[in-house]
């Protein structure tokens, strides 16, 4: 394949990764933005989404489409409920102390991961995509003094991958509308601004926190459901996803949803493109070091404004 088509292919793969990452990182960012806690178990909610998708799909038996739609609805709900329960039972009792919360969510990480290992097992399992038509993509080249269209071998995507991109965009728009237009969003933003004042105005801050933690986890689970027809579900898949989300959220500026989405696109695309040309391990090293240096030298994120 020539360079041009190759780059396009890499960008398409990158866009799929970016969409899933944007969903997952928005969940992390929302939780940090409103509750000021870092949820280390976030990757496990993503993993749970993927595992539940497999489980629901296999229960649904023959109908692939029905199974997938059910998974798309049920997995985020179940995971959201689990997360909200964890918030009420554990985090609330720690008064959301930042450091103790991190330690507790590390504990949750191992509990969820190891329980999955005990019940679901160590195997990686696939879920069949509800639709998966191969779509060839044309490319243009200059030949004989004119522009000529041709179909390079290997340059293609699938209808499912396009669906993932569209679904992610739709959900992210939905979240944005919810945050800016709805009453629930208003309550969340008020709580984010100032917890005490919100409480004084009668906002049920504790309930808001549980809901936000649930929504955050639900977004991760949704990302997990979407990814599982492309990558298989495995009990250890959470850690890499968590680290990538950290990278995205920190580079985008902690707690800023727009920054998170932009950073997800940036990281997803470049990760897709870089790992086509370089070793993926090297790409990861560069990304992790980048995060560390952003936190050290530009703690407001690459896109955030400096607060004085």
């Amino acid at each position: 394949m020539d360079f041009g088509p190759y780059l396009l292919l890499a960008s398409l793969e990158g866009a799929v990764l970016a969409s899933v990452l944007a969903l997952m990182a928005s969940g992390l960012s929302l939780v940090f933005g409103v509750m000021r806690v870092v949820n280390v178990a976030h990757g496990e909610f993503y993993m749970l989404g993927a595992v539940l998708a497999w489980w629901v799909a296999s229960l649904a038996g023959g109908s692939v489409v029905l199974g997938f739609v059910l998974a798309l609805v049920l997995a985020p709900l179940i995971v959201g409920a689990i997360a909200a329960t964890a918030d009420i039972v554990v985090l609330r009792r720690l008064s959301y102390d930042p450091e103790r919360t991190i330690v507790a969510t590390i504990g949750l990480l191992y509990i969820i991961q190891q329980l999955t290992l005990m019940s679901y097992g160590p195997e990686a399992r696939p879920v069949v995509a509800p639709f998966n038509t191969r779509l060839a993509i044309p490319w243009f080249e200059f030949a004989d003094g004119g522009l000529r269209m041709y179909w390079p071998w290997g340059l293609s995507t699938t209808s499912y991958k396009l669906f993932v991109i569209f679904a992610a965009v739709a959900v992210l728009l939905g979240i944005r509308v919810m945050m800016t237009r709805s009453r629930a969003g208003l309550l969340m933003r008020a709580t984010q601004q100032d917890r005490e004042i919100a409480q004084a105005f009668g906002i049920p801050v504790e309930r808001v926190y549980a809901v936000v933690f649930g929504i955050g986890a639900g977004l991760a689970a949704l990302a997990g459901v979407l990814i599982v027809p492309i990558q298989q579900a495995h009990y250890l898949m959470g850690l890499d996803a968590l680290l990538l989300s950290f990278i995205v959220v920190i580079i985008g500026g902690l707690g800023s949803l727009a920054g998170t989405v932009i950073a997800a696109v940036l990281i997803g695309m470049s990760e897709g493109i870089i790992s086509v040309f370089f070793s993926p391990t090297l790409a990861k090293i560069i990304a992790t070091l980048l995060v560390a240096f952003v936190l050290v030298f530009r703690p407001q994120g690459l896109m955030g404004k400096r607060v004085r």
Partner: peptide, 10 residues
Amino acid sequence: AGVALVLLTL
């Protein structure tokens, strides 16, 4: 380890 971490912090 996970259970211990949660119980200890709590």
